[in-house]
Amino acid sequence: MKLFSRACRPSTRQTVWAIVFFVAQGLGLIALSRKWIPPPYTYAVAVAPLIAGLFYIHSMVSDIRRRMDELQLRIYLEAAAVTVGGLFLAAMVHPLFEKAHLLGPLNDSIVLFLIVGLFVAGYVNAVRRYR
């Protein structure tokens, strides 16, 4: 099985929302850190990437429903289960590792890395199982 089949490729709509999200996120961070925007409007700047992100998730889910067959859905489900389970486990055991001075504080970058890493690992494992 090809690792990333055509059904897994994002649609144009999904790609557009991803670009809008990253642009809103990047411009928002710059605008807020340089204080270009006065206080009442800062809320709108903060909320803009959230809205774009929600539209991205909506288009991603509708793409998955429309383009994937039942085996591809199962592979995605297994990868998602590994991601959620792995994140839950990491969140539960992290305080112990931190108290044992094995790990530092859990920050956003580590969580993002864990999400991507766990999903890829779960996806590759599921693809190999059904190959």
Binding site: K2, S5, D69, L71
Partner: peptide, 10 residues
């Protein structure tokens, strides 16, 4: 069958 070739193979 409107599924992927991978599904048929599996």
């Amino acid at each position: 069958l409107h599924v992927s070739r991978q599904t048929i193979n599996a």
